[in-house]
Design a protein around this nucleic acid. Sequence first.
DNA 1: CTGAATCCCTGACGATACTG
DNA 2: CAGTATCGTCAGGGATTCAG
Lengths: 132, 132
Amino acid sequence: MEATVQEDLTGIRPEKGKILECRTELVPVMDAVYVINGKWRIPIIMALMEGNKRFGEIQKVVLRISSKVLAHELKEMELNGFIKKHTCNEGPVIIKYELTDYSWSIKPVLLTLRDFGIKHRNKIRNESRGGG
Amino acid sequence: MEATVQEDLTGIRPEKGKILECRTELVPVMDAVYVINGKWRIPIIMALMEGNKRFGEIQKVVLRISSKVLAHELKEMELNGFIKKHTCNEGPVIIKYELTDYSWSIKPVLLTLRDFGIKHRNKIRNESRGGG
DNA sequence: CTGAATCCCTGACGATACTG
DNA sequence: CAGTATCGTCAGGGATTCAG
């Protein structure tokens, strides 16, 4: 398991003679999607945005996540520099997870995502009211 | 298959006595993620951002997508109001796919995603140069 | 409490062939 | 050209159990 970016998942090829802004933009977009990918990354990040937490505390907040999956996600996210682990060996071993500064830099993404999500939900609602 | 938002995929439960901004934010964020989910949605959207295209044209631009998957994605995206289908019955039947205005409103998401993706890739690069 | 190990299942996606 | 049908693969994730 290594920290990675996607090499080229773009799956887009430029058409001949076409200015293709979208093509060059797609690579970093897919990189970002890769990072926030999966069912649990965002819930975990947002849970930790509330404050640092222990393994069990995260599990209480992020509903229905199994310990296997949480451990796995946490490990990957640590590798990718999204979280730090504090192990305090004074007395009982306490392990806390904390977001890195880097992880906080994902916040603008979360905000635009949220805005779009709100818009999307309203749209669906209007449609099912209006004529669906 | 219906146009949907996720009912509650948040997997986050508020802790007692805690202000939980993140909890309320998570729902729309996951809605948005749900929408751009999967391997092909974003490539397809960005392909259509170049201009309207026929089925086969999309397939030429979005590399390695099978017709089955493309048909499926197109159908779902139409249901969700992301694309419109023009069928012109004058002479040979021509079907073109086109983004809706609504679909274009996802552009801010794509842009912040791109910015973060660029940052992420640089970070990985620096780390592997520096000490990894 | 914090995980690791194991087994299994589902659903997304791929390959190929076929139809109007 | 624009899809549909069928089958197969595979990784993410669930349930359970075990260990430090």
